[in-house]
Design a protein around this nucleic acid. Structure first.
Lengths: 199, 199
DNA sequence: CGCTTTGCATTGCAGTCGCAACGTAAACGG
DNA sequence: CCGTTTACGTTGCGACTGCAATGCAAAGCG
């Protein structure tokens, strides 16, 4: 085998460029040439690693998901061992909110893909499992906190709050503090007041 | 003045076609020719009523907003006089959820525009007032219900729940009943349990 | 040393895009 | 009745799109 190069690395390099383009100008500005230029490579190379545009989009979508997943993983790891359910949930959900410019960029891309998958049900189906797992985990934490609410319904509501706050934050409808305040209010409602609420 | 035609009518005719295209194939499938074909008119006529594509998009966005606004207005009017805050809020927010195919179509368009405005801050700014008004109204209703929560924070959380539920519904991540259940759970949390919850 | 496989660049093509330009039919004011 | 204005339809242009095709250098295997 000649000229062994790390395929995965090249593909993520291209996907990163795609995300930069999408974050700045939206998914409709994503073209083979545009992405190639942003990545600083030839458009032929992009075609070499992704035979079709759809393939590139699908890969980029998976990168977006892994990106936020690893972000949450790191934030949770930084908590130390055995965090309380409330601390754990707040850390995870706050990490997923577009509170700084880096996460805003990611959020814009995620939002673009949300609209993208909304008209491509086949692609959307791949994300259902992820959501179901996340919901189950959240419900488990709520259960562990011995809250006086139905854990499954509360989990759906809590995750929806986070998603909605993210959307409104991206639209600039209110500042980050308002979103964090609402998130803490929600956790108060679900788990009882008085948890630690560092920024 | 020759050949008087109702400008507003033609423009909404075209905007409706645009929304049909966007609901089915996403905003990136919206082109002058495509919209014209969907509306059954020539592309020249589209250009006659919208000098640029941006102008057409902006008009369509305003139509989307008025559409959901009138939908909510009708649902609230059907409640009869002096509804309880809880009934009023539930009716309004449930009406905004994509629970049937008609509202799903509208929701897909709205989601597409959400991503669209996320990379066009100037357009997004026009929507801030709307959100602020809606938040103020919701906060007022929560205050009227004499809930034991901060009305402003609760309003932000409640609106975010609705938005998030809508997004997940559009993605098909769970069925309408789950979303409605979570919405009622949220209202229970904010206003105290026991309200009437017809479908 | 060939020879094949892989990595990548270039070119070209058919199609679509937004938009300007032009043409024309109809209706009203003078 | 004539000229202007409005309401379209048609055509075309330059730019861009995804993608196939082609070319070629490098690197391993025989």
């Amino acid at each position: 085998m000649p000229k062994r190069v790390d395929h995965q690395e090249r593909r993520t390099l291209i996907a990163d460029a795609l995300m930069r383009v999408a974050a700045e100008h939206g998914l409709e500005a994503v073209s083979l040439r545009h992405v190639a230029a942003e990545a600083g490579v030839s458009s032929g190379m992009v075609q070499h690693y992704f035979r079709t545009k759809d393939e590139m989009m699908a890969f980029a979508l998976s990168v977006v998901r892994e990106h936020s997943e690893s972000r949450v993983g790191q934030a949770v790891a930084a908590l130390g061992p055995d965090p309380s359910p409330r601390t754990l949930l707040r850390t995870m959900l706050a990490e997923l909110l577009p509170l700084d410019e880096a996460r805003r960029a990611d959020g814009r891309v995620a939002l673009a893909f949300l609209a993208y998958t909304a008209v491509r049900p086949a692609v959307a189906a791949a994300l259902h499992g992820e959501t179901a797992e996340l919901l189950a985990f959240i419900a488990g934490q709520i259960r562990a906190a011995q809250a006086r609410v139905d854990p499954d319904r509360a989990a759906v509501a809590l995750l929806a709050v986070m998603e909605g706050l993210g959307v409104y934050l991206l639209g600039g409808h209110y500042p980050p503090e308002t979103a964090l305040g609402a998130l803490d209010t929600q956790l108060d409602l679900l788990l009882g007041p008085g948890g630690p609420e560092e920024t």
